[in-house]
């Protein structure tokens, strides 16, 4: 059903939005002075890895990403079928925003980012790929050093920073669209949602975009 699919997109999307808040909050630990950041970040990730509730939520998270992506693909293919012939001339920019029309493209960029991001960290820590991970003075995995070493590569930092732009654009339309899909129709509340979406997407874009740059220039593993 057309609307059922959009409910799934909206619910998984909003769940991922909440995850991003948690993720960015944790990333702010990286901005502390080197020694403090190292201890705080390693302890934080150690606690996460050993908490069964977090393990359960992380499965939900993987499922949300998969459902959101697969459903997006199905919806996009069906939408393309619904308009088999494009217009010769179409000034769509006069009636709608670019990001609202290109959510699939923006989403694909974010998916590529997620895959690279997971290869950079998740695969090393969770699956044990790559060289053996360093251990800090408390005997915990020194994720902080892994993060800093990875982001000392200018290409990776640039990739992270640039990809925060499509993320912000996707979130700006996605949050508002999800609210409407789930049936919020009162104009006053939709105005609040628009304000929240703008604030939220800016914070996420700037946060995820600038932290890698900060690490590249100022942090030491």
């Amino acid at each position: 059903m057309l609307i059922n699919r959009k409910y799934i997109m909206a619910i998984t999307g909003l769940f991922l939005c909440i995850f991003l808040i948690v993720h960015l909050s944790a990333n702010f630990l990286l901005l502390l002075p080197n020694n403090l950041a190292k201890e705080a970040y390693n302890t934080y990730s150690h606690l996460l890895r050993n908490n069964p509730l977090i393990s359960a939520v992380s499965i939900l998270l993987y499922l949300a990403i998969i459902f959101h992506s697969v459903m997006a693909l199905i919806i996009t293919l069906d939408n393309k079928k619904a308009k088999p012939q494009k217009y010769f001339m179409n000034y769509a920019q006069q009636n709608s925003s670019w990001n609202s029309r290109n959510m699939g493209l923006l989403g694909l960029m974010i998916l590529i980012f997620i895959i690279v991001h997971m290869a950079n960290f998740w695969a090393k820590v969770k699956l044990g790929y790559g060289p053996e991970l360093p251990i800090d003075s408390k005997g915990q995995i020194d994720i902080y050093s892994v993060v800093v070493t990875t982001l000392k590569n200018p290409f990776i930092t640039l990739f992270y920073t640039i990809l925060s732009i499509p993320l912000a654009m996707h979130l700006h339309h996605g949050v508002q669209s999800a609210a409407k899909t789930l049936g919020l129709y009162h104009k006053r509340y939709l105005k609040y949602v628009a304000l929240i979406a703008t604030f939220y997407s800016c914070v996420m874009g700037l946060g995820f975009g600038l932290i890698p740059l900060y690490i590249y220039f100022f942090s030491q593993g």
Binding site: M1, L2, I3, R5, K6, I75, D78, N79, K81, A82, K83, A92, Q94, N95, S96, S97, S100, R101, M103, H173, Q176, S177, K180, T181
Partner: peptide, 21 residues
């Protein structure tokens, strides 16, 4: 809504183009 789907219309992406036109 079921009939709308049977008629091969697509999903709503809330681009807002419809309300402008």
């Amino acid at each position: 809504v079921s009939q709308m789907e049977l008629e091969n219309f697509g999903s709503c992406s809330f681009t807002g183009a419809c309300e402008i036109e």
